[in-house]
């Protein structure tokens, strides 16, 4: 067995290591803490938003080892050893590639007016970066389908697709 949280009933906290936005963190977590709650409540990374808390809205989307997931449905303890990127780390990702201070997708979202209230935007951005990393979407229809896990109640969908399409055609930046 790799890890055991102690005897039944003890519910001990477990030490895990996460690299969050490039910074290595050693953290003790209770097994029932979701990755979303860990980021927001313990690490003050409140850019990642809690919308439905049930994997239906996509506001909590983050990148785990470059792959987009709903952080509300992930137990932090299970991500031990992973590299996490939240919206706060997207600019850093871009800088690694020697581009502007914002990630190209962040620039494109501003350029295309791809949000109104902004609540879904961190999830939309992380999801878009994940989409480009995956490399499966090529057409507008495919972008729309691949972004269907991110709801926007302001209805900025058309502009979000415009923003992603533009960056996709420029060549994906991780």
């Amino acid at each position: 067995m790799l890890i055991e949280s102690g005897s039944v009933g003890a519910h001990a906290k477990i030490g895990i290591t996460l690299t969050i936005n490039g910074e290595r963190r050693e953290i003790e977590v209770a097994p029932w803490t979701t990755l979303l709650d860990l980021l927001r409540e313990r690490l003050d990374l409140t850019g990642t938003k809690k919308g439905c808390d049930h994997g239906q809205c996509g506001a909590c989307t983050v990148l785990v080892d470059g792959t987009r997931i709903n952080s509300c449905l992930a137990l932090a303890v299970m991500k031990d050893g992973a590299e996490i990127t939240t919206v706060e780390g997207l600019a850093g990702l871009a800088q690694k590639h020697g581009t502007n201070t914002l990630h190209p997708l962040q620039e494109a979202f501003i350029e295309h007016d791809a949000f109104q209230c902004g609540y879904c935007t961190p999830g939309q951005l992380c999801s878009s970066v994940g989409l480009l990393n995956e490399g499966h979407a090529r057409s507008r229809e495919e972008i729309r389908e691949a972004m269907s896990g991110n709801l926007c109640r302001c209805g900025a969908y058309t502009n979000i697709v415009d923003a992603i399409e533009e960056v996709m055609h420029q060549g994906a930046a991780r």
């Binding site: 067995m1 790799l2 890890i3 055991e4 949280s5 102690g6 005897s7 039944v8 009933g9 003890a10 519910h11 477990i14 209770a30 097994p31 029932w32 137990l75 303890v77 299970m78």
Partner: peptide, 28 residues
């Protein structure tokens, strides 16, 4: 969410053993 114990298994045999026939334990 309720409180629970957490076990991480590295082999199939370990996982089956860790579940231990406990009707209240789940694989995740």
């Amino acid at each position: 969410m309720n409180r629970f114990d957490y076990v991480r298994a590295d082999t199939v045999a370990d996982a089956i053993k860790a579940l231990g026939g406990d009707p209240n334990a789940r694989f995740i």
